[in-house]
Design a protein around this nucleic acid. Sequence first.
DNA 1: AAATCGGGGCG
DNA 2: CGCCCAGATTT
Length: 295
Amino acid sequence: MSSPFSKSLLRWFDTEKRDLPWKETRDPYKIWISEIILQQTRVAQGLPYYLQFITRFPDVIALANAPQDEVLKLWEGLGYYSRARNLHHTAQLIRDEYNGKFPDTYEEVLALKGIGAYTAAAIMSFAYGKAYPVLDGNVKRVVARYLGIHEAADLPATQKTIMAWLNGEIPKSKADDFNQALLDLGATVCLPQNPLCNVCPVALDCVAQKEELQGLLPVKSKVVKKKDRFFHYFLIIHPAGQILIEQRNSKDIWQGLYQFPMVETNTDKSLKKTEVQAFFEETGFSVGTDGAKID
DNA sequence: AAATCGGGGCG
DNA sequence: CGCCCAGATTT
């Protein structure tokens, strides 16, 4: 028996699913390649790479036997190049330790380099039909909105909550379609900005839709905004040859340490004449005839 | 829990 | 320019 959510989702998927080449195979090797390429990479960007990759390396042995340089060359432009190195390394491990046959248990797949919880679940469901829910950025967004989760979606505790709910929703017989449907829904309907709730199959029971929270969910854990800091140091030399330093009293990582006298600004532009004058007035130093050049 | 890893598309 | 993308790994 399937829930209203799963039922509506799968019915929508029947007619609205994206037509993508890695959906046409159950070959764990090809599904593995597609999942690695699509890690943090848009489908439109990864698609041509996938086609080139499986053309040049049609199976795990071909990949394992290729020189690493060639694998990296095919990866050129995709970024996150450790993915390509892990791919090559893992292909050789499968060749040597698994007799060329891709492993088919979750634990074994998860243990492979470059494969985390998401990719392991994707391979288990798409290649072997096993009921392991996938949890990626799309799924987090869809579920956080559907359930109205106000905790940050990328926190481990929240992911556990979402995963528990997914485990109760995923149908054993159509686990692969369920996972694909969630990914497709997140990518084409439940968009990060301006989701298309009017065509969403589960909008009626969606908490975010009911309470108009689509723009607020999912909540992200706040990123500490990095501020640029610019330090302008003065080299002040006494006629007798001594050089002036001061001790930092500001409460930061350098508290108590010594430095040349300094003015901090939030731009990297050189100090204006007025700022330099202000510095000398505050400190009580004056500029001698052969002293600092002010411009 | 947060930083790091990249390149690209888009408003 | 900031955000986001079929995340994984290290600190």
